[in-house]
Amino acid sequence: MKRTIAFSLLAAGLTLGGSALAEAVVGQPAPAFTGVDAAGKPVSLDQYKGKYVVLEWVNPECPFVKKHYDSGNMPTVQKYAADKGVVWLSVSTSADGDRAGKSAAINDWVKAKKAMPAATIMDLGGTIGKAYGARTTPHMYLIDPSGKLVYAGAIDSKPSANPADIKTSTNYMVQAIDESLAGKPLSQAVTKPYGCSVKYG
């Protein structure tokens, strides 16, 4: 039986403004989206049809995110993905606010961390996050060339904010990319995400 997942606030017993987040189900089409990146350019999932796409929810202030960026781990995985032709989209979800200020700040942070996303999408108001049921930073998704969601969950197997744990953990995203590109069933198609809560406001 295929493993499926519905990462929703309803499943977690939480709601946003009285309504639950939509489902993002492994094995089903990934929710379509259109957004604007930190450079002010439009970005849509549809423009990457025919490619593998990683979605990574990010918050520079989160200690779990800092674990993977300050150590250089996440930029290394981003480069690994890019070298294999995988598109990496970081998503910064927040309540409505100063788009220009937030975009400038995250652009500076991406540059300082030598990160390599194809784009950082500014998800002000949380439309994209709600469509996927993104709960944590980081929260990771892998979408295949047909637009199907094939992985959802954590970046790795050790849910801590300690950079020392990276060396002894299983990197689920690298594993999912490698197995998908090799045409193999994923060893872990669904894992439990860990990190700071996504800030929907």
Rank of each mutant, 00 (worst) to 15 (best):
R3G: 15
T4Y: 10
A6E: 15
S8A: 10
L10D: 12
L10T: 15
G18C: 09
A20R: 10
L21R: 12
A24I: 07
V25G: 11
G27C: 08
G27R: 10
A32R: 13
T34K: 14
A39R: 15
K41W: 11
S44G: 14
S44P: 10
L45K: 04
L45D: 07
L45P: 07
D46A: 15
K49C: 12
K51G: 12
Y52P: 06
E56P: 09
E56L: 11
W57I: 08
V58T: 11
N59S: 14
P60L: 08
P63K: 07
F64E: 08
F64S: 09
V65E: 11
K66H: 09
K67N: 07
K67H: 06
H68T: 13
H68D: 15
Y69I: 07
S71V: 09
S71G: 12
N73E: 15
M74F: 09
P75L: 07
P75E: 08
P75C: 08
T76K: 15
T76M: 13
V77Q: 09
Q78A: 10
K79R: 14
K79H: 13
Y80L: 09
K84W: 04
G85E: 05
G85V: 05
V86H: 01
V87N: 05
L89A: 02
L89Q: 01
L89H: 00
S90F: 02
S92C: 15
S94L: 12
R99D: 11
K102E: 13
K102D: 12
A105Y: 02
I106S: 04
I106D: 06
N107K: 10
D108M: 09
D108A: 15
V110A: 10
K111D: 13
A112D: 13
K113H: 09
A115T: 04
A115Y: 00
A115D: 09
M116S: 15
T120W: 00
I121R: 00
M122N: 08
M122D: 09
D123Y: 00
L124K: 04
G125T: 06
I128S: 01
I128D: 01
I128M: 01
K130H: 08
Y132C: 04
G133S: 06
G133L: 02
G133E: 05
A134I: 03
R135F: 13
T137R: 05
M140N: 08
I143C: 04
I143D: 02
I143N: 02
P145G: 08
S146W: 03
G147R: 02
G147I: 03
L149F: 02
A154Q: 01
I155A: 05
D156S: 02
S157K: 01
K158T: 11
P159V: 03
P159N: 03
A164R: 06
A164I: 04
D165C: 07
D165Q: 05
D165V: 04
I166G: 05
I166Q: 02
I166N: 03
K167F: 03
T168H: 05
N171K: 00
N171F: 00
N171T: 02
M173D: 04
Q175F: 00
I177R: 00
I177K: 00
E179T: 02
A182N: 04
S187E: 06
S187M: 04
Q188K: 14
Q188M: 14
V190G: 01
T191N: 03
T191P: 01
Y194F: 11
S197R: 06
S197T: 12
G201A: 14
